[in-house]
Structures are given as C-alpha cells and as structure tokens.
Amino acid sequence: MTIKLSAAGNVELTGICSSDEGEILLQHLLATPNIMVDWRGCEAAHTAVIQVLMATRPKLLGPPASVLLEKWVQPVLAATMDK
C-alpha cells in the first residue's frame, strides 16, 4: 500500500502510486476534510491519483521525490489550488 494515513495525521503517498489508488486517496480525503497530503516520498503517481488531487485540492506537503513530478505535475496542482 503506497497510500496510507501517516502518524502525523496526513495522507502519505510513497513510492509508485498506481491507478486504482486514486479511489483510496479519494476515500481518505472525503473521510477527513482539510487533511494534508504528504507526497514527499512519492516517486511516481498515475494520472488517476493526480486527478483526485486536482479535483479535491488538498494542501500538499512537498516537494515530491521525483524530479518529473516536481517539474511538471507540481505546477499543475499549484495552478489548480490558485483557482
């Protein structure tokens, strides 16, 4: 399981998050409104997972572990937060 609740009370994304984990992430976010998402350990995330982040706009704890995520996906999410 790469998506789980951390000891600090955040949702934690670690390693490679696959497509079916979008659902799990969504459940966490729905269960606890305003919960933070810590993706500092995330090495890759499937579009489905990113899409959940875009739709729910949680506060993110970053930067993510992967350069690709940091360079391309983080700005997209940041732009979503601005709206």
């Binding site: 659902e23 729905l30 489905a48 899409q51 959940v52 875009m54 739709a55 729910t56 700005p75 997209v76």
Partner: peptide, 26 residues
C-alpha cells in the same frame, strides 16, 4: 523536449461525492 504543460478538467469537477476516480476527465 517538453517545454510547458497544462492540465485542466475537461468538464468542471463534479461534487466530490459523485466524483468517479476511475474516469479520466482531463
């Protein structure tokens, strides 16, 4: 040689309780 990326929802995001995480809306 990617230079810029923009990702937007195809249709405005639905309310979260009716949001389907398995459906791509981008």
């Amino acid at each position: 040689e990617l230079l810029a990326l923009d990702v937007q929802p195809l249709v405005a995001w639905p309310s979260l309780d009716s949001f389907d995480p398995f459906k791509c809306n981008l």
